[in-house]
Design a protein around this nucleic acid. Sequence first.
DNA 1: CGATGTCCTGTAATCGTTTGCGGAAGCAAG
DNA 2: CTTGCTTCCGCAAACGATTACAGGACATCG
Lengths: 341, 341
Amino acid sequence: MQSTVTLRDVAQAAKVSIATASRALAGEGLTSRSTEARLRRIAAELGYRPNALARGLKTRTTRLVGLVVHNLTNASFRVLAEVVQRRLRAEGYQTILCITADDPEQEAEIIATLADQRVDGLIICPTGHNGARLAALDSNGTPVTCVVRRDEMVEMETVLAADPEGAYAGTRHLLELGHRRIGLIVGRRETTSGRERLSGYRRALEEAGIAFDPSLVHAGPYEPETGLAGCRQLLDRADRPTALFVANHESALGVLRGLAERDLLVPDDISLLCYEDMPGFAWQRPAISVVDSGATAMADLAADRLLQRLRPNAAPPAETAREYRIGARLIQRHSCRPVAP
Amino acid sequence: MQSTVTLRDVAQAAKVSIATASRALAGEGLTSRSTEARLRRIAAELGYRPNALARGLKTRTTRLVGLVVHNLTNASFRVLAEVVQRRLRAEGYQTILCITADDPEQEAEIIATLADQRVDGLIICPTGHNGARLAALDSNGTPVTCVVRRDEMVEMETVLAADPEGAYAGTRHLLELGHRRIGLIVGRRETTSGRERLSGYRRALEEAGIAFDPSLVHAGPYEPETGLAGCRQLLDRADRPTALFVANHESALGVLRGLAERDLLVPDDISLLCYEDMPGFAWQRPAISVVDSGATAMADLAADRLLQRLRPNAAPPAETAREYRIGARLIQRHSCRPVAP
DNA sequence: CGATGTCCTGTAATCGTTTGCGGAAGCAAG
DNA sequence: CTTGCTTCCGCAAACGATTACAGGACATCG
């Protein structure tokens, strides 16, 4: 195989100018039908493939978009990566996936590199410390869509889960089953999701006329260890909660372990409800009820929004700086049961 | 913020030629110390960032590498994506992640687009139907490293799990605990891993003087459904196996479900050993023993190999076309028990 | 003082495309 | 035969960097 065949080679082989070759292959009837067909044939024979760098340099568009997430362990991010990648590719865009590990410095570096690469757009779950850079990009003509988390510092198009409502609905469900002491294991208060899920839980309780008891909530990072620790803390109380609401799936692993340690059976001894679905929950026995935060829908909407703004007739950024919320949805399986009378 | 500042702007601001500006910012003492410092300062003030497209076009190197996997659900791929991304970024490379869904056509398209993008290298888990394209890329100066799966049709640098040995070791472990009827739930025979894991299982049995019984193995795609179906098939036999060896973690979910359906307790009623570790296994109660296929090590080695060949003094491809195997390792937890006498 | 060498810097070509502009050819109408 | 339109094509200038080559300034040495 020869190294690389350029437009020049194609043009020479067809005895036309480079310009004509370019136009012929661009389609759009810029050349006569016959030359177009001929050029196409020759290009195919020679195995010509346009150089994306040169094209990008000239046209100022690369058909690359950056996707920036914290990790791939969390199911939401995984789904995000898969869905966004698929959706964008269907429209002719390549996805550059980058992982920040939730570290603002790495994020800053990634944003810069992506900008150097002249990506056409960006979907990002921001750490919250680089809002200015993102806003700069956005107003410079590179659309940025935030997802999963919001950057509080700056106005940008954002698609989020309806966490307050989701947590509210989950808590309501448990309340309606008659539970009064509901333990909550939730993310740190510094994160949007941590705060919002807590507030939904709290609102549901207060509406039901139950005083909010801070000692019933355990907050920590999204890790199994948090679940285990929370479980221990909550289960060692004299008035053990009759239900546990675990506000993310990483902690759920630890909770399951904690329950097993104490030989507590779900749902006989205690009810369990989780936030964010994952494959394991449906296959578990008993299958675990869940309020699904709608990761797929979020990913789809994020892709939609970005694609929308990537189209030639882009709306002015001011117009697009709004916030979308994806509704959460309760999936009842078999881990919750009415409290015994 | 102005749109974009180019080298020309920096040069003008410093009243030098573009060439000097370029050299100054390149470092390496191509200019006098003073101009270098001055140019650096001005570039920083103006917020100059080199255009990766233009640079790539000229230097024929983009510091982009493609990473092509089947999905992100499988833990090996997830680890691969995270590790490779991190390792490459530490060396100044960006990773373009692409997902084939194990579909040769999508894979072909992805390879072509990546080539158009002029990636400097490629790490890919091949479907096995595009070996020619990959080989062409490789011999054209774009190093390609295959991982997890081999493309049987063509010689290329490949890093694989030591599946035959891993399956052998796992089976041995169960045999040493006294198990004689060991059910195997394994991938389809069309895949390398399916074949190799089966062969390791078989060899261990035969060495122990136990006849291989095809009715004890259930093969299917890497999905929970396979595990459930296999479980049902194997457990409904009169002479139920005393141990189950589940050769991938997706199926394990289904197996756990199948066991629960029949109220079989692990490890009291039946021993369970899985292939490929995942977070859930360690947290499960009882924690599940596993032969870890070494996904992290594979990812690291793949990154190492590619980086090696990316360095200026690249070895001739013929020299590098070898196969690396990552040793598997038995992790004993609490799901296997000696068979009752 | 002139020759030579060392440093720096500028000029210009180049990477592979796209695209504005103008010219040639063809054809119909006057 | 001139004029005026279309239609198709070529010339050449970008896009933003890197880099071979050459020239200018200055110091050193014979």
